[in-house]
Design a protein around this nucleic acid. Structure first.
Lengths: 338, 338
DNA sequence: CGTAACAAATGAAACGATTCAAAGACGAGT
DNA sequence: ACTCGTCTTTGAATCGTTTCATTTGTTACG
């Protein structure tokens, strides 16, 4: 069983020094044509493959970037992750994805792991209180970029979306349709959700006779949305809200399923429905779902860019980029009623 | 800016030899209580974190397992990946996930990368012809397990699901409901899809007056399903199939949306609909979708187990595990018509 | 012919952990 | 006092690469 050949084996086989083989791999211009060909031939014959561990050890740093997300199953995060991977690949780096599942201990586990791997930097959607941990990392030369969370700018960089503005846009839109009694569905204990609610309340406050009721859902899933939807259907028609704003699309789709299945409530005629995130599935729902689009692609790409800036500045300069969300109107909030 | 401390710094600080520090970390029993405490104190004070590259270099192998999937966005694969990660974590390993996106060159890229990382083993849902590549890896002591693909047992191990049986189950189910004119939706150029079709055709052949029409879809997505659905709606009612079997749930949901949106076709009364994979969304679709459940959790877990077996046997013994899929009946194929 | 200038190739040192043969410490038994 | 065995600790060697100060080779020019 032939084990993997080392650079030394290649050197012997090609009758050159190890440094020369290394140069062929890293600085081809420094090596003469003839020698290069001979070395490359030996590499092919022996099936030599670089040992990345040795390279990292010498370099003192890996070509790896750690990314910790709240839930890879959530299309929002998988989309951000994909964009970050692409941007990193262009820079010759690799992204390792860790899923904290909103659990602080899992989050800590991945931070330990990434630190042992000597990652170039860390992208993280924090769940626990990671401020101290990030300070430590920065002192050790590992820059961090917060993702989907606004950072204290003298601590680290961040990319996020203006959640309050998003909430405002959604509520304003249904208010503009003439709806007055709104309901907000979500779990405000999550920071992003709380901000969206705050924005919605601001929009409501601008209209004299409008109101918004908060329906705390048990999670952020389709199933949780269905439960809320069922509770709405059970209400007397006059007690139902005229518009429902859900803190994410999964919830909204759940609500939609409850409402449409029972056929007693029409969307958007009786209840206008709007979600958040604009996941791929929103456009192809039974009643195409209006939503607030977040620029996931830009989030992932910018996160990598900010990380590169941090590296260049030696972790001294920090910058926070806040994107503006965008209203996407579809059938679930179509004209009727204005 | 304090850089990361090495094991040597810890040794100096605790006034012991480097070997002793290493023993504290790896063989705590060999070290006396007093020394251990002193070393641990120094580790804490200096904030020492193991350098994994150095460890790997010495060990000659990483604690990493590579996993290459066709599409992480697909719930089937993300579920398998999650299960594999959990199983690997229990064994003290880490799973690196690469997304080939059904592209042979991306697949090759990840194989190169994982080889440089000296992964313990490789789990792969192959897209290109990787047989030779796998042979090379095996020779070099990197065992491979095929995922969702049956392997040649004297080459490597594999975990898969009996796709033909799944196709048979689905078709048999709708035939048992009394439906005779079936349609199969999918892209038979994909191996798994072709097998499912073959199974369906077998079931149809067992019933004298039954037939199955193949509708080649442009992809395996919700959108592709909608297109097929629209084409069905455009047909004269008497030319429509009585049952539609889609090669995955995304397609089925797309078809469902087309059919229900136009309200001219009722599910399941006019057309019974069944998908494949039983993704989380199937149960909460407008009309809850019947499907063929694949044991994703078991696939991921078993893949890791087989990899462990390969490692123990030094890559000599291979084993293929084939799971049996399971019919899940929901409203989209409910009783009517039998 | 001597030498300056440049290009190419060399090979030892370093990265940070683990391993392991050897040395040291200590008590028990004779 | 001496030997033996057990438990602890030591520190040099090792993994495979990159780096860089040197050496070697080649060409050009006075």
């Amino acid at each position: 069983m032939s084990q993997t050949a080392s650079i030394k084996d290649v050197a012997t086989h090609a009758q050159v020094a190890v440094g020369t083989v290394s140069n062929v791999l890293n600085y081809p211009d420094r090596v003469s044509q003839r020698t290069k060909e001979r070395v490359l031939k030996s590499i092919a014959e022996l099936g030599f493959v670089r040992n990345d561990a040795a390279r990292q050890l010498r370099a003192g740093q890996s070509r790896t970037i750690g990314l910790i997300v709240l839930d890879v199953g959530n299309p929002f995060f998988s989309s951000v992750a994909r964009a970050a991977e692409d941007a990193a690949t262009a820079l010759g780096s690799v992204v390792l994805v860790g899923d904290s599942g909103q659990d602080a201990s899992r989050e800590a586990h991945y931070m330990d792991l990434f630190q042992e791997q000597r990652v170039q930097g860390l992208l993280i959607s924090p769940v626990g209180n990671v401020a101290e941990r990030i300070d430590t990392l920065r002192e050790r030369g590992v820059p961090t970029v917060l993702v989907d969370e606004l950072a204290d700018t003298d601590r680290c960089s961040s990319v996020s979306v203006d959640d309050e503005e998003g909430g405002y846009l959604a509520a304003k839109h249904v208010l503009d349709l003439g709806r007055r009694r709104l309901a907000f569905v979500g779990t405000p204990s999550i920071r992003q959700v709380a901000s969206r609610l705050k924005g919605a309340q601001r929009a409501v406050a601008e209209v004299s006779d409008a109101s918004v009721e908060v329906l705390d859902s048990a999670g952020q899933t389709v199933l949780a949305g269905r439960q809320v939807g069922n509770s709405l259907v059970e209400r007397a028609p006059e007690l139902r809200p005229e518009a429902v704003f859900c803190s994410n699309d999964l919830l909204a789709l759940g609500v939609m399923q409850s409402l449409t299945m029972l056929r007693t409530v029409r969307i958007p005629e009786d209840i206008a429905l709007i979600g958040y995130d604009d996941i791929d599935f929103a456009i192809s729902a039974v009643v195409p779902l209006s939503s607030i689009r977040q620029p996931t692609e830009a989030l992932g790409r910018t996160a990598i860019e900010l990380l590169a800036e941090e590296q260049e500045s030696g972790g001294t300069k920090h910058r926070s980029v806040v994107f503006t969300p965008e209203l996407v109107v579809r059938q679930s909030t179509a004209g009727a009623g204005s």
